[in-house]
Simulated scan of single mutants.
Amino acid sequence: MPDPTAADFVLDLMPDLRDALREAATLAMPFFREGGHTAARVWSKAGGSPVTEADVAVDTFLKIRLSQLVPEAAWLSEETRDDPVRLGRDLVWIVDPIDGTRAFLSGHPDWSIAVALLKAGEPVVGFVHAPAGGHDYEAVRGRGATRNGQPIQVSGREDLGTARVTGPKPMFDRLGRGAAQTGIASAFVRVDRVPSLALRVARVADGGIDVGLVSSSARDWDLAAADLILREAGGAVCDLHGVPTTYNRPEPIHGELVAVSHGFRDAVVGAWSRGA
C-alpha cells in the first residue's frame, strides 16, 4: 500500500473523502426538518447532551468507510467510546458526525459533519461539510483551503475595533473591555452565535467572521478539521495566550480558545489579557 503519510497519497484520498462525506450527509438529511423538529429518534448521553439516530448512523458509516481508506489510522469520534490505542498511532481520524446537534434537532441549518486526519497530532486533511447550508469546506496541509471548490482566505480587516465577533457573551464582553483598556475604540459587530463550532471556525477562514470565540470544554472533534481549514486560509485556533491548539492528547478537551487571522491574533490576545 502507498505510504499514507506522503503528500501525494493525501491528495489522492480527497475524491474518496468527498464521496464519503456526501454519502454520510444522505444518511442525516432525511431526518432534518428546516425550521422544525427533527424526525430522528433522540436520547440523552451521560451529562445530558443530546444524540440522535442520525449521529449514530453517520458515525458508524464513516468509521467503516474511513478505516477502509486508511487502515493504519486510529479513531476518535464524539459518538464512539475512546480507545487509548490512538495515543500510540501516528495517524488518527477525528470525526464529529453531526457538529451542532441542537441545531440539527431544531431545524437550524448551521450544523455540519467534520472530519480530520491527523499526523503526529497535527491535521493534514480537514473537511467541514454543511449539507443543509450548502457549504463544503476543505483543506490539505500546505495546499490552501476552499469553500465549494473556490479558494478562501481570512478577512483582510485591520481594525480590531470594528471586527465582526461571534461566540459566548461573557467572552465577547471581556474582549470588549480589554480592547477599551488597550486604547481600541471597540465597536465590535456582534455576529449571531454559529451553533456548529466547526462552522464558526470555518467562517473565520472564509472571511465572513473576524474573531470566533470558543468557550472551554470544546473537544478535538469540534475543532481539528476546521482548524486546518483556518490555518490554510491565514489564521489559527489558539488559546488566549496565543499558543496554537494541539490534538490527540490523552484528554481531548480544550480550554477557552479563539479562532482568528494571524493579523488579529496579537491584538486579540492583548485585549483578552486586559479584559478580566
Score class of each variant (00 low, 15 high):
210 D>T: 09
26 T>W: 05
276 A>L: 10
83 D>W: 01
43 W>V: 09
50 P>W: 01
276 A>T: 11
157 R>Y: 01
163 A>I: 06
202 A>G: 14
4 P>H: 12
24 A>Y: 00
4 P>V: 11
226 A>L: 03
157 R>L: 13
190 R>D: 12
270 G>E: 14
74 A>S: 13
50 P>E: 10
267 A>Q: 15
29 M>Y: 09
218 A>W: 00
269 V>Y: 00
156 G>V: 10
218 A>G: 15
82 D>A: 08
148 N>M: 10
220 D>L: 05
12 D>Y: 07
159 D>L: 08
71 P>H: 11
104 F>K: 14
110 D>N: 14
3 D>R: 06
14 M>F: 11
71 P>L: 10
131 P>A: 00
272 W>K: 01
119 K>G: 14
44 S>M: 03
103 A>L: 12
254 H>K: 13
75 W>L: 07
5 T>E: 15
255 G>E: 11
21 L>R: 02
273 S>C: 03
257 L>G: 11
117 L>M: 06
147 R>G: 00
132 A>M: 01
107 G>F: 14
80 T>E: 14
248 N>W: 04
255 G>N: 06
86 R>H: 05
261 S>L: 05
64 I>T: 15
26 T>A: 13
169 K>Y: 14
78 E>F: 00
203 R>P: 02
257 L>H: 06
260 V>G: 08
255 G>M: 06
117 L>C: 11
74 A>P: 06
240 L>R: 02
143 R>D: 13
1 M>P: 11
149 G>V: 09
70 V>L: 00
176 G>P: 07
252 P>R: 09
126 G>T: 01
227 D>P: 04
177 R>T: 07
8 D>K: 08
169 K>A: 10
141 R>T: 04
49 S>A: 09
182 T>H: 00
262 H>S: 15
264 F>V: 09
71 P>A: 12
272 W>H: 05
239 D>H: 04
258 V>A: 05
275 G>F: 06
135 H>Q: 12
196 S>I: 05
192 D>M: 08
175 L>F: 07
161 G>W: 07
169 K>C: 00
241 H>L: 06
227 D>S: 15
122 E>R: 12
53 E>S: 11
11 L>G: 01
243 V>P: 03
160 L>R: 03
260 V>K: 03
15 P>V: 10
104 F>M: 05
164 R>A: 15
68 Q>N: 13
259 A>C: 06
162 T>W: 00
169 K>T: 03
45 K>A: 09
15 P>S: 14
84 P>S: 10
57 A>H: 03
199 L>R: 05
11 L>N: 10
79 E>T: 12
276 A>Y: 08
249 R>V: 04
15 P>I: 03
161 G>V: 05
178 G>V: 01
108 H>Y: 13
179 A>N: 01
122 E>D: 10
117 L>E: 08
274 R>Q: 14
112 S>E: 10
